[in-house]
């Protein structure tokens, strides 16, 4: 990498952080649109989950099952907080780890499937998660889990680092900063991962698993690793989402959400780490903006989507950044 490229990259990251942490809150304050905090938190969380889906695309698998892990992560966090009185902050990594562990169990057999089979079985997985949540007693069936307390304070050596969310005048401001911080961390991690040795191995899996195997790579272990990281992201995103909504139902994440996570990745472009973020932002706001069109909302939305895929089948990022293709 030349020094100039490095300079551009650092400037890009700096600009992104400034926009997300300073410019957006200032703009919202200036426009008196505090409701946007909730919308933008949702975008951040959905893009975390989409980032996980993107990673499974990166190893050459079409994953339509992220809704399952978002739901499981949400339930784990909700149950730990309400039934066991655990702090939200502790339940968040636990939800992610639980999803990762579950995905290892599920992934070992189903990652042997390729192409459309994997896509279809992950789609079924979303339905399994929803039906299990309905049937089990720990998830309280169709009634779901409601009035989940807001996250409490984090203290270190008697010093309050993060105050309890209830003390904020506008709870959603706190959730906004939480969501975008986690999003920035997740995508930084994802970017680092893709550009590491393991990332190269993942890319090798996408191009040809048999060839990669003949080079001495432990293909099944790498596949499961990628899937576990992907599900971890799904679980974390789901857990924070549940904390914002303060409730979770079996229908909180459905097949539609799973398909949307996949669409976010497609729209942003599968060759770009930050594609899912852009894709989520565009799809979510596109949907919101079309709200005024009333009954024609879905018709226009899907029509635009079809047009986009016709004109830009390789994602939005392929428009402006042809030289940064990572594949």
């Amino acid at each position: 990498m030349t020094p100039m490229q490095r300079g551009t990259r650092i400037a890009g990251i700096g600009a992104f952080l400034v926009v997300v942490f300073i410019a957006v809150p200032m703009a919202i304050a200036a426009a008196h649109r505090t409701d946007l905090y909730y919308t933008l938190s949702s975008v951040a969380l959905l893009s975390i989950a989409s980032g996980g889906v993107w990673l499974t695309f990166y190893i050459g698998r079409i994953n339509i099952g992220q809704g399952a892990f978002a739901l499981v992560g949400g339930y784990v966090s909700a149950i730990l907080v309400t039934a066991y009185g655990l702090s939200f902050w502790l339940s968040l990594p636990l939800a992610g780890l639980f999803c990762a562990a579950a995905s290892v169990l599920v992934g070992l057999p189903i990652l042997r499937l390729r192409g459309v089979y994997f896509a279809m079985v992950t789609l079924v997985l979303t339905e399994v998660a929803r039906l299990s949540a309905l049937a089990l007693s720990v998830t309280n069936g169709a009634k779901g889990i409601t009035s989940i307390p807001a996250p409490g304070p984090i203290g270190l050596f008697g010093l309050t680092i993060v105050p309890a969310f209830d003390t904020f005048a506008e709870r959603n401001v706190a959730f906004y900063f939480l969501s975008v911080t986690v999003m920035a961390l997740c995508f930084a991690g994802l970017w680092r991962l893709v550009n590491s040795r393991v990332g190269r191995l993942f890319a090798a899996l996408r191009q040809n698993e048999d060839l990669a195997s003949s080079m001495g790579l432990n293909v099944p272990a790498l596949r499961v690793l990628a899937y576990a990281i992907s599900s971890f992201l799904g679980g974390v995103g789901g857990a924070i989402f549940v904390a914002i909504a303060q409730s979770i139902y079996p229908s909180s994440f459905t097949v539609n959400d799973s398909v949307n996570f996949m669409l976010n990745c497609f729209l942003g472009g599968l060759g770009y780490v930050f594609g899912p973020m852009l894709g989520t932002l565009v799809l979510y706001f596109g949907w919101d903006l079309l709200f005024q069109t009333g009954q024609y909302q879905l018709l226009i939305y899907s029509g635009v989507m079809i047009l986009l895929i016709l004109l830009l089948p390789n994602g939005l990022f392929s428009l402006r950044l042809p030289s940064r293709r990572s594949s």
Partner: peptide, 14 residues
């Protein structure tokens, strides 16, 4: 697949 999903949404709406 994206196109197919888009078509599905479009037909649903129509």
């Amino acid at each position: 697949m994206l196109l197919a999903a888009g078509v599905a949404y479009f037909l649903d709406a129509a």
